[in-house]
Design a protein around this nucleic acid. Structure first.
Length: 371
DNA sequence: AAGGCATCCAACCGCATTGCA
DNA sequence: TTGCAATGCGGTTGGATGCCT
C-alpha cells in the first residue's frame, strides 16, 4: 500500500483507519455532507487526504452498506453479471444494493474465481475450461477478436464512464459491448458459438429464438409491462408501444442501457429523455411494424386449456395487451415457450401473420442494434 | 511454540474522465 | 481551447489472520 503524492506533501496519515478517525469522518459527513472531498479532512479534523476519506466513506462508513457474508443469490448474480460486464466492478455493484465495488472485486478474486474453476468454468471467459484449453492449443482467436479493433489500448463507449479493455483478450468484455449501436451482429455477442458477422439474418433470428429465456408480466404497472429475458443476460422491457433494453439478470429495478452501460430510469415520466434515447437505439421501434413470439406445441395447448384460445394467434411478446385481457398470462412467467415469429403491420385492419423472410430480416436487424 | 505459507480484504496507486475557470 | 483540480474506477499492494507442519 503506497501513499498518495498529496499525502507525502502534507505528511498525512496512511494505512488502517482508527475508530477515532472513523468517528470524526462519520460525524462530519452526517452533519454537513461530504461536499468537496478535498476539503473534508480539514473540516473534519483528519490527517488524511480527501481521496482516502472518500474511499473510507464509500467502502465502510456509508449507512446503507449491507454487512456480512454474501448470500448464494448474490454470488450467483455476480457471476452472471461478470459474464456480461467483465471486470466492471462498479456496474456490477450497482446491481447489488448495499455492496461496494471493492467488496465484490475482493470476493471475485478470492472466492468466486476459485468456485468457477472447480465447476470447470474459466472465470475470465465463462467458457468451459476444456474449450478454452482447446482454443489455446489451436492458437484459435476467440470469437471476440473479430469484433474488437484493438486490445492494447483503452477505449470509451458512448461518452459514458471509462471502459478499460482488459489485457486478456479472452475477456467477455470484448464480445459483449458493441463499439457502436449497430456495428455488431447479435449472435457474436449472445454466446460463444461459432456464429460470426457473416451469418444470414434468418440465422440471427434463429439464434435469438434459441436464446429466449422467458417472458413475464407486471400486472401492478399501468400499462402492464412485459419483460423478455435472453440467455446473455440482456432483456427487453416493453409496454404496448416500445421496447427498452436492460440487464435482465438483475433482481433490482435498475435498468441498464447496454449501449451506454449506464443506469437509466424508465418510469412514467413522459418527458424522460433517457427513454427517447433508448427508443432511438433499436430498430424495433419502427412505426409500421409490430412483432412478437407465439407459443407453440405443449405451451400452446396449455394456453387453450386456460381459455386462451382466443389469443392463440396473438404474439406473447406484445404481452401487455394480452396480459391486460388475460390475467392468466402471469402463469407463464417461468415457462420457456417454444416460439414462432408473428408480425403485424400497423395498417388499418392488419392482422397477425406468420413472418416472412423480410419480416425476419427487420426483426434481426432490430435486435442486432439493441444487443 | 514457532516459523512458513496461503488467504483475505482494506487501502492505495495510477490513470481516465469530468467540470470549471 | 486549454489547463487544472476533483472525482471515479480497476488493478495492486501489503498487513492481519488462519492454517499447516
Amino acid at each position: 500500500m503506497g501513499r498518495h503524492s498529496c499525502c507525502y506533501k502534507q505528511k498525512l496519515r496512511k494505512g488502517l483507519w482508527s475508530p477515532e478517525e472513523d468517528d470524526k469522518l462519520l460525524r462530519h459527513i452526517t452533519q454537513y455532507g461530504h461536499g468537496c472531498w478535498s476539503s473534508v479532512p480539514k473540516l473534519a479534523g483528519l490527517q488524511r487526504c480527501g481521496k482516502s476519506c472518500r474511499l473510507r466513506w464509500i467502502n465502510y462508513l456509508r449507512p446503507d452498506l449491507k454487512r456480512g457474508a454474501f448470500s448464494q443469490e448474490e454470488e450467483n448474480l455476480i457471476i452472471e453479471l461478470h459474464a456480461v460486464l467483465g471486470n466492471r466492478w462498479s456496474q456490477i455493484a450497482a446491481q447489488l444494493p448495499g455492496r461496494t465495488d471493492n467488496e465484490i472485486k475482493n470476493l471475485w478474486n478470492s472466492c468466486l474465481k476459485k468456485k468457477l474453476r472447480q465447476r470447470g468454468i474459466d472465470p475470465t471467459t465463462h467458457k468451459p475450461i476444456t474449450q478454452v484449453e482447446e482454443d489455446n492449443k489451436l492458437g484459435r482467436k476467440s470469437s471476440t477478436s473479430n469484433n474488437t479493433k484493438s486490445s492494447s489500448s483503452n477505449t470509451t463507449v458512448g461518452g459514458g464512464g471509462k471502459v478499460v479493455v482488459e489485457k486478456n483478450s479472452n475477456s467477455p468484455d470484448h464480445q459483449r459491448y458493441p463499439t457502436s449501436s449497430s456495428s455488431q451482429i447479435l449472435g457474436a455477442q449472445m454466446n460463444h458459438s461459432s456464429l460470426n458477422n457473416d451469418m444470414s439474418l434468418s440465422t440471427q433470428y434463429e439464434f435469438l429464438k434459441d436464446n429466449f429465456v422467458q417472458a413475464s408480466y407486471d400486472h401492478n404497472s399501468n400499462p402492464i409491462v412485459s419483460t423478455f429475458s435472453f440467455a446473455n443476460g440482456y432483456g427487453l422491457n416493453s409496454n404496448s408501444t416500445s421496447f427498452l433494453p436492460f440487464l435482465s439478470s438483475s433482481s433490482s429495478s435498475t435498468i441498464v442501457n447496454p449501449i451506454r452501460h449506464s443506469p437509466v430510469s424508465i418510469g412514467s415520466d413522459n418527458n424522460n429523455n433517457n427513454n427517447n434515447e433508448l427508443q432511438s437505439i433499436g430498430g424495433c421501434f419502427d412505426q409500421s411494424y409490430s412483432w412478437g413470439w407465439r407459443p407453440t406445441g405443449k405451451e400452446a395447448d396449455e394456453i387453450q386449456g386456460q381459455g386462451w384460445s382466443q389469443y392463440q394467434h396473438t404474439p406473447l411478446l406484445l404481452g401487455s395487451t394480452i396480459a391486460n385481457q388475460c390475467p392468466q398470462a402471469s402463469q407463464y412467467d417461468e415457462i420457456k415457450p417454444e416460439i414462432s415469429p408473428l408480425i403485424m403491420t400497423n395498417e388499418p385492419n392488419s392482422t397477425w401473420h406468420h413472418s416472412q423472410q423480410q419480416d425476419l430480416q427487420r426483426l434481426a436487424e432490430a435486435f442486432g442494434q439493441i444487443f
